[in-house]
Amino acid sequence: MKRGMIDFWVGLFVLAGMAALMFLALKVSSQGNLPTGSTYSLTADFENIGGLKVRAPVKSAGVVVGRVSQISLDPQRYVAKVTLDVDSRYQFSRDSSAEILTSGLLGEQYIGITSGAEEKTLKAGDTFKITSSAIVLEQLISRFLFSQADKEKEKQE
């Protein structure tokens, strides 16, 4: 094998490897669906976060506007403190509400933001005033069963 040919093939090899990496980077994966860097963080307290995980999407009207960056327990009030990284292109009014939703019946959980009417917007570090917790399927089912049982009792009496 001539030296020039080796150079050529090795060059082609490196190019092909780079192309494969580019394919994986651009076509297969995403950078968290956000232009990196320009985010600000908001917090929201929930009584129960269900199966919410770090890096779960934050959506408003179905559009991804950010990611969950941190989840911790507030040791005084025993509520979950969730930190959201929100794209700084989007601003939300101060009376916006955050709720934990499920995509589909058994899908992943995410945070939905419903905007309010106030003119003042939430700044970095602010907290959502209105939140609603995750719907936990087990609780839902047991509540349904108990209510059925109560109805049965009422009928018998």
């Binding site: 990496l21 994986l24 076509k27 297969v28 995403s30 950078q31 890096r55």
Partner: peptide, 19 residues
């Protein structure tokens, strides 16, 4: 097929860790 893949695969967490 592609958009679901893209939504679930993270560049830093999945691709870079593989590399």
């Amino acid at each position: 097929f592609w958009s679901q893949m893209q939504g679930a695969v993270d560049f830093r967490l999945d691709v870079m860790n593989g590399v």
